[in-house]
Design a protein around this nucleic acid. Structure first.
Lengths: 205, 205
DNA sequence: GTAGTTACTTTACCGCCGGTACAGTCGTGC
DNA sequence: GCACGACTGTACCGGCGGTAAAGTAACTAC
């Protein structure tokens, strides 16, 4: 890692921690550079403006989260050949993982951007959209596999069900933060798992 | 309505519209007062600071939303004596209502506060918490009625299921905004309805 | 009918923050 | 040894949240 990319990385790490803790706007460039121990000019050498920092954080986050999901559902697939079981195991693992990193979930970054539309430029919003569509595609593929074997017990749009994974996480984060109770987020993921289970489980005879 | 409360109301109306459109931070006091046609000092006569405006908006929002839910589930109750059917009808009405007011859903205010913690003071966060707990209590009562008749088909925490209503709405808003597709939010509410239906429906024989 | 209160306006100012401009510096790689 | 990359230092700008305080028009109580 070169000197430049090291500094850039450190700016992003410090910024991400602060932004997740208190929001994008409440995190000043001046406080970031103080923490990284560079000057303000040093910051603007790496990022043309604060927006570019947000963009870099979102794009890095998508990569990290994709890798995490790959790992998680990869392990789940090793544990079962059945696509429904794989999904249920994966969601359980996700709930456990999330429970262990209470305030660190990066979905926040997407939501922050969603809620401060005019604060961010088109690039940031496009990247945000890309992230959500990526998750939809991932989970839609898994749901298709499941639905091919287990006909859903209710008439649903599988894209919407796929979106529900992201939605449940984002909504869970908001509730967790609003109530200052970190157990809510994993609990909401568990409920999503319960829905998937009920939706695709063959009727008991 | 006195002159003062009229002006206060107008400040809040203008502010709410702007905040929902572009976020709390991106909405300046100067632009609010320009739109209301008062001076900056006039604003600070009514609100000690911007935080107090946020607090007033959240508290007004809770009242409006409570009244809306009262009306909605009241109508649903008129349409069926069965608590499960009442819940399902109410969620359907909610989905329709939300579909008709694409970007206007005020849940945004709660989320905005949740995502900009340090930007708001303790009062705002307390009010926020109160709102979410109020929704939990409302839906928990309905779920208790349902569960007394229809035993749930999966082991779930009913408080968590109650929270899921708020969570699904908040998450749906984020997805709708991120994808700029207003149909996602009502769709997510429909999925919640599907879950409640599957969770409490007696098994088909 | 006038004194006091309410609901503001006017003017002037402060400090923080995002951002710009630009010259200077210091280490590394060729 | 020199060019380039990765910064530092200094100085400045405008917008925004917020403060201070004096002035004023309209209503309201007595």
């Amino acid at each position: 890692m070169s000197r430049a990319s090291g500094t850039r990385q450190r700016i992003m790490d410090v910024a991400q921690e602060a932004i997740l803790r208190k929001g994008f706007d409440a995190t000043s460039i001046e406080e970031i550079v103080a923490s990284v121990e560079i000057t303000k000019s040093g910051f603007f050498y790496h990022f043309p403006d604060k927006n570019a920092l947000a963009l870099a954080l979102i794009e890095r986050h998508i990569e990290v989260e994709d890798a995490l999901f790959d790992d998680l559902f990869g392990r789940a697939r090793e544990l079962s050949d059945d696509p429904l079981q794989t999904m249920l195991i994966g969601l359980k693992l996700l709930a456990e993982l999330i429970a262990d990193m209470p305030n660190q979930h990066p979905g926040c970054i997407v939501a922050t951007a969603a809620y401060q539309d005019r604060l961010f430029n088109r690039d940031v919003r496009a990247s945000n959209r890309k992230a959500v569509l990526g998750w939809r595609k991932r989970f839609r593929a898994m749901l298709d596999e499941i639905a091919a074997i287990y006909p859903p017990r209710d008439e649903v749009d599988l894209d919407a069900v796929a979106d529900m994974v992201s939605g449940q996480v984002e909504g869970g984060i908001i509730l967790s933060r609003a109530l200052e109770d970190s157990s809510i987020l994993p609990q909401q993921v568990v409920l999503l798992r319960s829905y998937i289970k009920l939706l695709f489980s063959p009727p008991v005879q």
